[in-house]
Amino acid sequence: MTTITDTSKSSYLFSLTIRLADSALIASQRMSQWCGIAPTLEEDIALTNVALDLLGQARHLFSYAVDLDGCRKDEDQLAFLRDPHQYLNYTIAELPNGDFAQSCTKSFLFSTFSQCLWVSLLDGEDSTLRDIAAKSLKETDYHIEHFSRWFVRLGDGTDVSRQKILKSIDYLWPYTAEFFGNDRTLSNLEGLLHINTGKLQADWVNAIEDVFTEAGIDLPSDSDFMSTGKYGVHSEHLGHILAEMQYLQRSYPGGRW
């Protein structure tokens, strides 16, 4: 593990780790909502797999965040006892699943972005994040494979499925601006992680372009909407997710689970 003496840098590293952990956890929680009700039994199993992978990633990241922070005892304190404004996930992760098209588009857009992030973390100087990135990359590649296929199938399939995919892009696309918008956490960590959001964006567009083409869909133009979940200012949805997720830890303090 890289030792960081500069405390402000350490707090940015903690923020970034928490951002990645929260994004994975909230995406996993959303994905888990499909468990038992997916369009086919095979898809039920596949989506649960993705939820489990994301949860695993979140746990590795939380455990690193516990090391960095020093005041929190364990992953569960971080996951279950923080309030919505302390959550730093990208907003897109908390958006409702909607129909199957919306869930696939959301996961496709988010997992391709995650892939770009993991790849860039491989070049950073933080060895723990490097290890987590390497492990997560394999899983993320599978997620992209799965959801890009659905994106193409639904985009190309029937009129109904195509309309639903278009509608989902219309809803979700504006939230992707948050991936690359002004990012004081990443810019403060530039010396350690060397992540450049401009390059990240170019990589991401590159990654999704072919899939959009295959689905016969044009890349949307950017809107001027900017979500801010990564700074703790969320949509209305996160509060409900946490109310449900944190219910037992909050209602029965001091319990053993």
């Binding site: 009700i37 997916a38 369009p39 086919t40 898809e43 129909d99 199957f100 193409v152 199938r153 639904l154 190309d156 399939g157 029937t158 109904v160 499925s161 639903k164």
Partner: peptide, 13 residues
């Protein structure tokens, strides 16, 4: 029932 259009789309594709 809600998954029907998904299965149809997959077949069509």
């Amino acid at each position: 029932e809600e998954g029907a259009w998904v299965r149809e789309a997959a077949m069509a594709h």
